[in-house]
């Protein structure tokens, strides 16, 4: 993986290339038109991770767009990962958005299928799914490498992206999930962020299959982790959030914990899982998803021994004068 030239020269890419254990974290997009709300959420993540994922209507619920969040983040010198889901936009909109994102300085893109509209708060909406996640990944790769739209029309300046894809090793068909990963790698994925890992056994088995195909040498794999607040939160996640698998042992462990120490126990479980996945060959980093508890991310990363991150090594002041830059002094 190390011989080829840098895809996009993003901070995340450089961290992974250098062989360091990467940390990314998910930003909860606000239900607000105020940029301060984005910066407030980003601030607690920025110093403890290498890139910040801006979700694209996660759980099919409407929030500020990934595009909007990324625009704000790049302006302030943060390193975002633009999440693009196939649920809401057709190929025309997506290709246009990719160009727009690249122009704003976004260098990492995560290509997703997307949760279905029926799980969100507006189930009566029309689902799009014009492309699927692999076709989206391929389209982005073609735009970068061939410098054309899907129509064949030439781009004056092609974008440069470090391209990511998602993987869920924890749901059926378990014995074929690694083949889906192989497809994503063939389509052009540079890095993978997985669904929440709570079942280390299933993950080990998955990684064994991934290594058998040699995929761990072709793609960087970041394992999804996150803290559980209580057994109720765990129960909610495994029944209502699509694709989340939490084994009974973990729910049971939280149930047995006294109420005051549940939050602490959730963090401890998360840290234990990080320590275990770090030992697995082919794992290159973690992706922390702490829905509505961003303040715990720093603690988790610190306790897992992944701190300090190098403080924004990739950040450079934009060369051209940027008249629209935010007043950083106001961010608290």
């Amino acid at each position: 993986m190390s011989e080829r030239p840098l895809r996009a020269d993003s901070r995340l890419e450089r961290v992974l290339r250098s062989g360091r254990f990467a940390v990314t974290a998910e930003l909860n997009a606000p239900d607000s038109a105020d940029p301060e709300d984005v910066y407030r959420n980003a601030l607690v993540l920025a110093e403890v991770c290498d890139a910040i994922n801006a979700t694209d209507g996660s759980g099919a619920n409407c929030h500020m767009s990934s595009m909007g969040c990324c625009a704000l983040l790049t302006r302030a010198g943060y390193e975002p990962v633009l999440q693009v889901s196939c649920r809401d936009r057709n190929r025309i909109a997506i290709q246009g958005d990719l160009l727009g994102a690249a122009a704003m300085g976004v260098k990492n893109v995560l290509c997703l299928t997307g949760d279905d509209v029926t799980v969100g708060d507006q189930p009566e909406a029309k689902r799009v799914f014009d492309l699927d996640s692999i076709q989206l990944l391929r389209t982005a790769r073609i735009m970068c490498e061939q410098g054309v739209f899907l129509s064949g029309r030439r781009l004056t300046t092609p974008p440069r992206f470090f391209l990511g894809a998602a993987a869920n090793p924890f749901v059926p068909p378990l014995e074929y999930r690694h083949l889906r990963l192989a497809k994503k790698v063939a389509a052009g994925a540079d890095f993978i962020q997985t669904q929440y890992c709570f079942d280390i056994r299933i993950f080990r088995e998955y990684m064994r299959r991934v290594r058998d195909l040699g995929l761990h040498r072709q793609v960087y794999i970041l394992v999804g982790v996150g803290p559980l607040r209580s057994e109720k939160a765990a129960e909610f996640m495994r029944t209502r959030v699509p694709g989340v698998w939490i084994p009974d042992e973990i729910v049971e462990r939280l149930r047995k914990t006294p109420k005051k120490r549940k939050r602490e126990e959730g963090i401890r479980i998360c840290v234990e899982i990080i320590e275990q996945v770090r030992e697995i060959e082919g794992v290159h980093g973690i992706h922390v998803m702490a829905y509505r508890q961003e303040e715990t991310v720093a603690e988790i990363i610190h306790r897992a021994g992944l701190f300090p991150r190098q403080a924004r090594p990739g950040w450079q002041r934009p060369r051209r004068r940027d008249t629209s830059s935010p007043q950083l002094g106001r961010v608290k």
């Binding site: 996640s133 068909p173 669904q195």
Partner: peptide
């Protein structure tokens, strides 16, 4: 329902 032609989504 998502018209996926390249394999299952992560929501199975």
């Amino acid at each position: 329902p998502k018209n996926l032609r390249n394999g299952p989504c992560g929501g199975v």
